[in-house]
């Protein structure tokens, strides 16, 4: 049914996925305490993970609310049709990102600023 090459391909892809996953984890160790919200590839705003707040994000495609609590950020309500961004869960590390395609939003975790990175 399946040939030898099929099995080699599947094993290669799974090993590649594991290596890539370990590689993305390496981005997580840097000091990340700020969520960055980007709209259409341009920066919309930065919010500190250290202060608990509900951030309202207004876009021309619809609005959504980003909730920051206990050093974790999460989209709690969104006006987009598919609600995938609400189901993406909480982000707190440098390698994590929330993408909302209908609202053209990318929400990721970054270090405070380049100046502070030098200070750390």
């Amino acid at each position: 049914m399946t040939t030898k090459y099929d099995r080699i391909l599947i094993i290669f892809l799974l090993v590649f996925a594991i290596i890539l996953y370990c590689f993305t984890l390496c981005f997580a160790f840097d000091v990340s305490d700020t969520v960055r919200v980007s709209l259409d590839g341009k920066e919309y705003g930065r919010y500190s993970l250290l202060t608990d707040e509900d951030v309202k994000i207004f876009t021309e495609y619809g609005n959504c609310i980003l909730s920051i609590k206990n050093r974790e950020a999460e989209v709690v309500s969104s006006e987009c049709p598919d609600k995938y961004c609400e189901n993406m869960g909480k982000i707190s590390k440098g390698s994590q990102v929330i993408v909302c395609v209908p609202l053209h939003l990318v929400i990721d975790v970054v270090g405070q600023s380049s100046v502070d990175k030098v200070a750390y």
């Binding site: 892809l13 799974l14 590649f16 996925a17 594991i18 890539l20 996953y21 993305t24 981005f27 980007s38 259409d40 590839g41 390698s95 994590q96 990102v97 993408v99 053209h104 990318v106 990721d108």
Partner: peptide, 16 residues
């Protein structure tokens, strides 16, 4: 579209 390289973190999950 998002001009963000960071979305590549989804690639391992998507490959599996």
């Amino acid at each position: 579209i998002f001009m963000s390289f960071k979305i590549i973190v989804y690639l391992p999950v998507l490959i599996v």
